[in-house]
Amino acid sequence: MGKGRILGIAYNVIPAKDLEVSAAWFVKHFGFNIRHQREGYLSLFRGDRPILDLIQSDNETRATFEVHQKKRWVITFFTDDIGSLHTSENVKVGAISDEGQYGKFFVLEDLDGNLFDLWEHHDCELNF
Rank of each mutant, 00 (worst) to 15 (best):
M1K: 13
M1D: 07
G2R: 07
G2W: 00
K3W: 03
G4I: 10
R5H: 09
I6G: 04
L7W: 04
I9D: 02
I9F: 12
A10G: 09
Y11L: 15
Y11S: 12
N12Q: 11
N12E: 05
N12L: 07
I14N: 04
I14M: 09
P15G: 10
A16C: 00
K17H: 03
D18F: 07
L19N: 01
E20K: 13
V21R: 04
A23H: 05
A24M: 12
A24P: 07
A24N: 15
W25M: 06
V27L: 12
V27S: 06
V27D: 08
K28N: 15
K28M: 13
K28L: 13
H29Y: 10
H29P: 01
F30E: 01
G31E: 14
G31A: 13
G31M: 13
N33V: 08
I34Y: 02
H36L: 06
H36G: 04
Q37T: 11
Q37S: 03
R38Q: 14
E39F: 14
Y41M: 11
L42S: 04
L42R: 05
S43Q: 14
S43T: 10
G47V: 10
D48A: 09
R49M: 07
R49E: 06
R49F: 06
P50N: 05
I51Q: 02
I51N: 01
I51Y: 04
L52K: 04
D53V: 14
D53K: 01
D53I: 05
I55C: 01
Q56R: 04
S57V: 11
S57K: 07
N59D: 15
N59L: 10
E60P: 00
E60M: 08
T61K: 12
A63G: 03
T64S: 07
F65V: 08
F65H: 14
E66W: 06
E66I: 02
V67R: 00
V67T: 02
V67D: 00
H68C: 07
Q69Y: 15
Q69I: 06
K71G: 02
K71Q: 14
K71C: 02
R72Q: 15
V74I: 10
I75W: 03
F77T: 01
F78T: 12
F78S: 09
D81P: 06
I82K: 02
G83A: 12
S84W: 01
L85W: 04
T87M: 06
T87K: 11
S88F: 13
E89G: 00
K92W: 13
G94P: 00
A95W: 03
D98W: 05
D98Q: 07
D98V: 05
E99C: 11
E99N: 09
Q101L: 14
Y102G: 03
G103T: 04
G103H: 03
K104N: 04
K104P: 00
F105I: 06
F106K: 09
D110E: 02
D110L: 03
L115G: 00
L115N: 00
L115C: 01
F116L: 12
F116Q: 02
F116T: 02
F116E: 01
D117R: 12
L118F: 15
L118A: 08
L118C: 09
W119F: 07
H121Q: 15
H122T: 11
H122L: 13
H122Q: 14
D123L: 14
E125S: 05
E125P: 00
L126R: 08
N127G: 11
N127V: 11
N127L: 12
F128I: 07
